[in-house]
Amino acid sequence: MWEILSYNYFQNALMGSILAGVGLGIVGVWVVLLRIPFVGVAISHAAFAGSVIGLLLGINPIIMAIVFSLLASILIGPIAEKSGLEANVIIGIIFSLVLGVAFLGLGLIQGPKTEAFNLIWGSILTLSRSNIYINAGVTFLVIVFLVIFGKEIKAVFYNREVAMASGIPEKFIFFSLLFLSGFVICLNLNTIGGILIFSLLINPPSAARILTHNLSKMYLLSILFGIISCLTGLIFSYLFAVPAGAAIIIISSLIFIISLILRGRNGR
């Protein structure tokens, strides 16, 4: 089975998996601790809507997907702020809007629509080297942001109002967290797919949270669980010829369940 490693597409898939595990492992901690997990669903559907609109207008659907999901992730914070509503409510509104746009577009497209649906299902085995470079760049950006602003991020998790009142640029931090989460989610859509990315966003940090009460350890465990999910998922899909995304999701859910059982034993 080792000869598979010499294939370019499989190398890309391996690297894509590791990057997805790291990137989603980190932003997963953010969205779980900010209590906005459904940002994952909203952004992946924004990407879907973008790619549909791209197909419709004859613009590169991947680029339109990125534009749409970045737009969605940039807008959530300021709209919540302006309206005085919770970020979760705005996420719901954006989700339904982009879903509407996507369906409208699907109805209008004459030709084949596979390219748009690729983002929904993901296709880890068709990742290109340039996909990998872009994902690596964004994952690097997220790590750098976390390292530079780690203490401010912690304060924002604690209490946004207190953070602001104590002289921390809370809005910059909060909006950046939303934006970077959106960026990572969107770029990993062709790896994992829009429907399945949600569990890779939520399961690793949740399992990590169950096992530790220390923020740094939570990040590390979440990244570790993300990588394990992606790699074992990929290998299972190769060995048993099952869809990679589905295998990744099953593994990450298993990790969550095992953490739950371990916690039950230790009583934490």
């Binding site: 779980v32 601790l33 209590r35 912690k154 998790f157 604690y158 209490n159 109002e161 207190v162 009142a165 949270r209 530790t212 009460h213 220390n214 923020l215 939570m218």
Partner: peptide, 13 residues
Amino acid sequence: FQNEFIAKNVPLS
């Protein structure tokens, strides 16, 4: 603040 809120899900000592 009045009624400061600490989210129980945030792992902070």
